[in-house]
């Protein structure tokens, strides 16, 4: 597999009464045709990363680093270059389809808008394409003339996915796409996403706080904590051999179907990003904390060709697993 998107040393800062660095020195790659899962507690910077990747940050700005997408640095791309890349190469599915669809336009109009912003498709053709897209996600094509409020929650999310596919992008960023749905509908939508991904071969950056969901859908999983990447590896590696204490905590905080074990979770709550802790940002909540963790930022330790984590315990060769 080859690299589709490479994020190098990315930092994002929010400007306010005090500037807050919500993402710091993040390195990550997205391979072609993979589903990369991104997990972490609320406020760890997952959604910010999604917005940074599409260059749609509203309150903040990328304050350092590069995002190489098919060789082109998105951080230095002009507005017009970005406009062209958006949706035709990177599209987006957000958490709440209700609020992601314009309530006063029909879903057909919104899909056609996206198509015609990037191609010279004739209006009638574009409408036909919209109907096709709806049938791909198993929504009645006759619904093109419906308004968002006339559809159910699951249908709206399918419409969003259909719209994201409109221009056959290389990457679809999915920011908690199923969080607002009930469990049954959630299952259907996930299955649809996997099926479409297998069929069309696009990459997905799948963001969620639901580890069990990630384990069932992702090829690789990245874990973020307080604006930094803490661990990344294949789904198998993360599930069976998590190396960062935080990843273990996350995995221990939901019931597993594979084994019987005690749910422990993680004590405390994420730090304020206004004054993040020195050293390893997780040290305040870590049960294995050492003196070094409080002062020194842990470097990356490569555990295998695909598995890496940021933890002093690993640097020292301590394996407490």
């Amino acid at each position: 597999m080859s690299v589709l998107c490479e994020i190098c040393d990315l930092s994002v800062t929010y400007f306010g009464d005090v500037d807050v660095k919500v993402i710091e020195g993040l390195n990550m790659t997205i391979e072609e045709g993979e589903i990369l899962g991104l997990a972490g507690e609320s406020g760890c910077g997952k959604s910010t990363l999604a917005m940074a990747l599409t260059r749609l940050l509203e309150n903040g700005e990328i304050s350092g680093g590069r995002i190489l997408f098919q060789g082109q640095d998105l951080v230095r791309a002009s507005e017009e270059e970005l406009r062209k890349i958006r949706w035709s190469r990177i599209s987006l599915v957000t958490q709440s389809a209700m609020s992601s669809l314009n309530p006063v336009l029909t879903i057909g109009e919104q899909i056609v808008d996206a198509i015609q912003a990037h191609t010279n498709t004739k209006t009638r053709e574009a409408w036909k394409r919209a109907e096709e897209l709806l049938s791909i996600v198993e929504v009645d094509p006759g619904r093109v003339h419906s308004f968002p409020h006339e559809l159910s929650g699951g249908m709206r999310q399918r419409v969003m996915i259909a719209m994201a596919l409109a221009l056959q992008p290389d990457l679809i960023v999915m920011d908690e796409p199923t969080t607002a749905l009930d469990v049954v509908v959630q299952k259907q939508v996930i299955r649809k996403i996997k099926e479409l991904q297998a069929k069309f071969g696009f990459s997905v950056l799948f963001i969620t706080h639901d580890m069990s969901l990630l384990l069932s859908i992702a090829d690789r999983i990245a874990i973020m904590y307080a604006g930094r990447l803490v661990e990344i590896g294949t789904c198998q590696e993360i599930r069976t051999a998590p190396r960062h204490p935080y990843t273990r905590g996350l995995l221990n905080s939901f019931p597993s179907v594979f084994e019987r074990r005690e749910l422990t979770g993680i004590g405390g709550s994420p730090p304020s990003m206004l004054a993040p802790p020195n050293g390893c940002r997780f040290h305040e909540r870590c049960t294995l904390v050492t003196e070094r963790c409080r002062t020194e930022v842990p470097r990356v330790t490569n555990l295998s060709a695909t598995h890496a984590a940021h933890c002093h315990l690993l640097e020292e060769g301590v394996t407490s697993g």
């Binding site: 929010y14 306010g16 009464d17 005090v18 807050v20 406020g43 910077g45 910010t48 304020s272 990003m273």
Partner: peptide, 14 residues
Amino acid sequence: PEASPVLTNVSTRT
């Protein structure tokens, strides 16, 4: 409802 928790933190802290 979905206001970034980070920013919420900021304002309460300040």
